[in-house]
Simulated assay, not measured.
Amino acid sequence: MHNRHIRQVAIVGLQNIAVTAAYLVGRFWGLQLFAEGEFTRVLFPAAGIAVAGLMIFGLRVWPGTFLGALLTSETLGRPLLDGVALSLATTATYPVVCALLRRVDFHTQLDRIRDLLALVALAAGVGMIPAAVIRTSVVVLLGTSPPADFWDLTLVTWVSLAMGVLVVTPFLLAIRRMRWPRHVRPLRALEAVALLAGTAALTLAVTMVSPNRQMLFLVFPPLIWAAWRFQLAGSTPSILIVSAIAVYSMFHLPARLATDNDLITLEAFVATASLATLALAVAVSERNRAQDRIANASIELVHALNKLDESARPRQG
């Protein structure tokens, strides 16, 4: 019993370390790729990592998310008390979001449309509003931002958190269940690799050719193809690739200075592309499962009819 308890504590500790490391990677990724100064715009990957970690491992890994946020604050040179306050403000609502998802019987495999709706409405939508308000309030109280910018900063923070959950969380939930299929055909594996590479190349080309991002709709065909052919296994990495390149190009490959209208257009594109692609992937998965159930029921019915026919035949002799 004592060894079992030690083993459980060790497992929880390793899970917290893994979540902390992932949160740090997501936070620095966001700061390096999608940030203006120390503030992440449009996409906050760490939020998606935190929600996925809590949904996969449970509330026992919340200390890992807090530690990841605190370590990030320390590396940015903030005072310790300011870092603790901001870390608590950023991570305090993640357990509430996960509790809401479990309340509605959320499946981490995202195999139903209702699961996608719950993730969008409760996690990315309603769940991130308190997080944005609390974090912005702490930022204003610490004097980092003037009170006049409270509502604008709250809105931008909410969008950034929501996009992080919408883009990153489905990818982590899907990749956790990915298995290399047995007897996979070489052409299908080549198709998957070509699809991801082609999606990345097309997105990069579109963002460079169209500085105003009006041609981003050209990436919808490969996103649709990924959802149709590979469901979540193909759609979630495709969404992550498209979103990362599109947001990165806004801040690091500007042909002109990005305006507020450009940011709004980009945010609308990321949200629309993610929702449409995920919805199609989940719908196709549901259809495939329904077809499998019908096929299995048909086979069982045929077996039952054959047995009934054999029992009804007159015995000879």
Rank of each mutant, 00 (worst) to 15 (best):
Q109A: 14
A131N: 10
L305D: 01
R7P: 01
V97R: 01
D152M: 08
S87H: 02
F66V: 12
R293V: 06
T40L: 04
G77Y: 03
F217I: 15
G68Q: 03
V138F: 13
A200P: 00
F39G: 00
R229G: 11
L280G: 03
A255G: 14
G143F: 05
T40G: 00
A123E: 08
F66L: 15
L14M: 12
I299D: 08
I113M: 13
V206L: 13
L172N: 00
L116G: 14
L31Q: 05
V96N: 00
C98W: 04
T40V: 14
G234I: 07
T108D: 06
V302Q: 09
W29I: 04
S87W: 04
L33A: 06
A21R: 04
L24G: 10
D82M: 11
T90I: 09
A131C: 10
L153D: 06
F269Y: 15
A148C: 03
A89E: 05
V242M: 01
L166N: 02
Y94N: 14
V12R: 13
G68F: 06
A281Q: 05
A50P: 02
D111V: 05
N261T: 00
G198A: 05
A131S: 14
T157I: 08
P170A: 00
R176M: 08
L305E: 01
W225K: 13
A271S: 04
S87V: 04
Q291E: 15
V96Q: 00
L67W: 00
I264S: 00
E38N: 10
Q316E: 15
I239M: 00
